[in-house]
């Protein structure tokens, strides 16, 4: 392997892995049992997994069609649309949370109307956690899927059209299966981002054990009083997310091997 590639690659690995090693080395291992048994930890973990998964589902339902529009449609102003889609990536998440208030809060443009009509207010509910996470994480999915669509040979879609498939059938039966690996990669990115989401969640959904306190929020607040316990909680979150991704990867690889 050429050194100009190998050396930066090794530095890159070190840069990414050393902070993790730091957590592992400093972790008070004997406390792991008691910390896990603490009330609220299991709840926060469960809430994190459920809300990240729901946020990914929302992102798939909305994001894949959006990626298709960006990659395939002849829509004017597509580049503007693409820039808008990436806004949540550059927006500080806390600002994103405030922006969600302005639209979906009980004083918000849409949320205000909902509150007037039904008395239901979105902030401080688990649904708000899912919305905040989807807002921040969906661009990752959209960008991955759009990239996969652009890389996919559009002539397969031509072939499908000459075989009598309308655009919707073509999308379902040809395009989507062709870009499935890209969709899977995007969903993983999206899920991971949603799992670690902090700023938008604590702003828009608030923090209340059992309804809106996800692991990152629990970690942050624990850090204020008990940094060692916070390390333990971070490692739990990390372990669970890595285990989940590895499990899924095995399943996908198992299926992908048919190709």
């Amino acid at each position: 392997m050429p050194a100009p590639l190998l050396v930066p690659a090794l530095l890159g690995v070190a840069f990414l892995v050393l902070p993790l090693l730091g957590l592992l080395v400093r972790a008070p291992w004997s406390e792991i049992g008691p910390q896990l048994a603490r009330p609220g930890v299991g709840e926060a973990l469960r809430l994190s997994l459920v809300s990240a998964t729901l946020a990914t589902a929302v992102s798939l339902v909305l994001g894949v069609p959006l990626a298709w529009v960006l990659a395939r449609s002849q829509l004017r102003g597509r580049s503007v649309l693409r820039a808008l889609v990436t806004v949540p990536l550059v927006l500080p998440p806390v600002v994103g949370g405030v922006a969600l208030f302005l639209v979906l809060g009980r004083q918000g443009i849409v949320g205000g109307w909902l509150y007037e009509a039904t008395g239901f207010s979105l902030p401080f509910t688990t649904a708000a956690v899912v919305i905040a996470e989807a807002f921040v994480a969906m661009p990752f999915l959209v960008i991955s899927v759009e990239g996969a669509l652009r890389a996919a040979d559009a002539r397969f879609e031509d072939a499908a059209a000459t075989l009598g498939a309308d655009r919707w059938t073509t999308f379902r039966r040809v395009t989507l299966p062709l870009v499935a690996p890209g969709v899977a990669a995007g969903a993983v990115l999206c899920w991971a981002r949603a799992l670690g989401e902090f700023g938008a969640t604590i702003t828009f959904a608030g923090n209340f054990p059992g309804t809106t306190q996800t692991m990152p929020l629990a970690v942050y607040l624990t850090l204020q009083r008990d940094p060692e316990a916070a390390i333990v909680l971070s490692l739990v979150l990390l372990g669970v997310s890595l285990a989940t991704l590895l499990l899924l990867r095995d399943r996908w690889l198992g299926r992908g091997a048919v190709r």
Partner: peptide, 20 residues
């Protein structure tokens, strides 16, 4: 009977300012 436990006083105040 709080609905949210904020990470700092500014965050709590912001939610008041927004009327949420």
């Amino acid at each position: 009977a709080p609905d949210t436990l904020e990470q700092d006083v500014r965050a709590a105040l912001t939610k008041v300012q927004l009327g949420e």
